[in-house]
């Protein structure tokens, strides 16, 4: 490299930095624009959505679309259904998942490793393969079109998060567990006093995975519910879209309501989410 005097190099570097960040910002615009435009659209009256360009911000704060969506009981019911089902699904999946992961990582029992291989093998089964039989089972047990049917298949723990947590629990120093056993701690006490505090990061990860899955779940609730009283938010938004096709102002407002909880969670747990996605991919 030819030596460039310092005073000439500095502006060059500044220019390159500016270009670099401009590039990053342009890409960020592509990723964020749909949200911003949806907010713009949801805050405009129907006539303005059709007449103005999508990127022009609303001239005044118009809340009529949100009022229209939220005024009836129905939308609140869907929101309530989704929230309740997601909470139950998450609580069960994490609780039973932690128990299983602890057993596979830290307990001795006959057939343990073979049983774990069975859990791993089920990761190969695509979701759609189980839908027809699951629906058949739910009908057979008179559970079709109930809240139970929506969360039951996922509430007892799923192999994927059990696998993630087991890997993490196995990486914890075994001396602590051995010492606790020598001191006469019961397995339950070890679980609540040692494992839960030490395994916090991965348990938060499992909680986030379960929550996002429950909140976003669409195909299974679509299949297993057929009355509006049991409908969840995603199914109702899809129905709204097909019946109010061209009333974008309303459909956008409804979609935003569904997105808000996830956006809040993302804002709060952003660093954790990024770290945990990388953890789940690389920790192989």
């Amino acid at each position: 490299m030819t030596a460039v005097p310092r005073n000439q190099q500095a502006p060059l570097r500044t220019a390159r930095y500016t270009l670099f960040y401009l590039c990053l910002t342009a890409i960020a615009v592509v990723f964020v624009a749909p949200y911003v435009l949806a907010i713009f659209g949801a805050l405009k009256p129907a006539s303005q959505v059709l007449s103005s360009s999508p990127w022009s911000p609303p001239t005044r704060l118009y809340l009529g679309n949100f009022r229209a969506i939220l005024s009836g009981d129905d939308f609140w019911r869907y929101l309530g259904n989704t929230a309740a089902i997601t909470v139950v699904l998450t609580a069960g999946q994490v609780t039973f998942g932690v128990l299983a992961a602890y057993a596979f990582a830290r307990l001795q029992f006959p057939g343990r490793d073979r049983l774990f291989l069975v859990y791993l093998a089920t990761l190969m089964v695509p979701n759609v393969v189980t839908l027809v039989p699951l629906y058949t089972m739910m009908r057979q047990f008179h559970l079709a079109n109930t809240y139970w049917a929506i969360f039951l298949p996922y509430v007892l723990g799923v192999p994927y998060t059990i696998f993630l947590m087991r890997q993490y629990f196995m990486s914890l120093p075994s001396e602590i567990f051995a010492a606790a056993r020598v001191d006469g701690c019961s397995e339950w006490r070890i679980l609540t006093r040692i494992l839960l505090p030490m395994g916090r990061p991965i348990i938060i990860t499992a909680t986030l995975i379960a929550f996002v899955f429950g909140w976003n779940n669409f195909l299974w609730p679509l299949i297993v519910t057929d009355t509006t009283s049991k409908q969840v938010l995603t199914v109702s938004i899809a129905a709204l879209q097909s019946s109010f096709g061209e009333q974008w102002n309303l459909v956008l407002a409804a979609s935003l309501v569904a997105l808000i909880p996830l956006l809040v969670i993302f804002a709060v747990f952003q660093k954790h989410i990024v770290r945990s996605i990388q953890l789940s991919g690389v920790n192989r």
């Binding site: 001795q108 089972m137 298949p153 007892l156």
Partner: peptide, 26 residues
């Protein structure tokens, strides 16, 4: 050992059998 592990494993085992393995057979 089995009795100690059972309460930890049984809920998720029920889930895996009922909602993953049995459906594949069905």
């Amino acid at each position: 050992h089995l009795l100690t592990a059972a309460p930890f494993v049984l809920p998720s085992l029920a889930g895996v059998v009922l909602f993953l393995l049995v459906p594949v057979v069905i």
